[in-house]
Amino acid sequence: MAENNSTDFGYKTVPTSEKAGMVAGVFHSVAAKYDLMNDLMSMGIHRLWKRFTIDLSGVRPGQKVLDLAGGTGDLAAKFARIVGDNGEVVLADINDSMLNVGKEKLRNLGIVGNVRFVQANAECLPFPDNHFDLITIAFGLRNVTDKAAALKSMQRVLKPGGRLLVLEFSKPQNMLLTQAYDIYSFKVLPAMGKLVAGDSESYQYLAESIRMHPDQETLKSMMFDAGFDEVEYHNLTGGIVALHRGFKF
């Protein structure tokens, strides 16, 4: 990533001040078909990745959960049922189009009352210190301009004893898988995006943003630097996705 006043937007270098708006444009474009494209792109495997995240969350009734970059609410819906009426789930996203899709989806599922929807920037979260028992960010960290600032902000609002789970695309651990994944990402995904969502450029950006995201060990180090303890990660689907977990003590 370029330093100072520039940063990456996929494979492009853009002014740091413009990235958030450019990412917002991508997600305004894809919001309406986001869930459908997730199922198509991952052949439904994203549901297994998210289920594993729930399993490692350790969340219990009555707890407070922040689902950051929560988009259309897949994780928030599961957490809302677990924490129950005495708990709270905050579904936060920087993009209002994604939040609106998430609101409608959770209402249609009958999930109301213990979920709040907050438009928020991960780099400067509008929540008190030591507030949440659990924070999750699934497929959102790679779109954040200043990832180090976002991780520190998450650490600040997490209670002592709480945990952070970062579910994100990562680096495949096998060369043949890497080659096949590259072909799929740069040939199939943009074509699928054009066919289904009428937008190939946004899916080209998403493929590029995955390649620019820190690999497993780099992200682990970044979480330690942000103040998390006992950081570990689990490679899923050969490392195409990794789930990082860290604690605040």
Rank of each mutant, 00 (worst) to 15 (best):
L68Q: 02
V83N: 01
Q63V: 12
D74E: 08
N121V: 12
I82R: 06
M43A: 09
N121L: 13
P61C: 06
A76W: 02
G70C: 10
V65F: 08
L109S: 05
D55F: 06
E104N: 11
V14R: 07
D55H: 07
V65N: 03
T13D: 08
L68V: 09
R107A: 09
F79V: 01
G44I: 05
V30R: 02
E123P: 11
I45P: 00
G21S: 12
Q63Y: 11
F117I: 08
K19H: 13
L56C: 09
I111S: 03
G58N: 14
V26Y: 08
L91P: 03
D74W: 04
A31P: 02
K103N: 06
L99V: 13
L99I: 15
G87R: 05
M43H: 10
D93V: 13
L75S: 01
T16V: 15
M22L: 15
F52C: 00
A32L: 08
Q119Y: 06
N108E: 14
L75K: 01
Y11E: 07
N100T: 15
L75I: 11
V118M: 06
S17W: 15
F9R: 04
N86L: 14
A80R: 02
D55T: 06
V26H: 03
G73W: 03
V90L: 08
E123F: 15
N86Q: 14
K33I: 13
N121Q: 12
A69G: 07
K12V: 10
D96S: 14
N114Y: 11
W49G: 00
P15Y: 12
K12W: 10
I82G: 01
K50Q: 01
N38V: 05
L75D: 00
R107Y: 11
P61T: 07
R116W: 11
F9C: 03
D93R: 08
K78I: 04
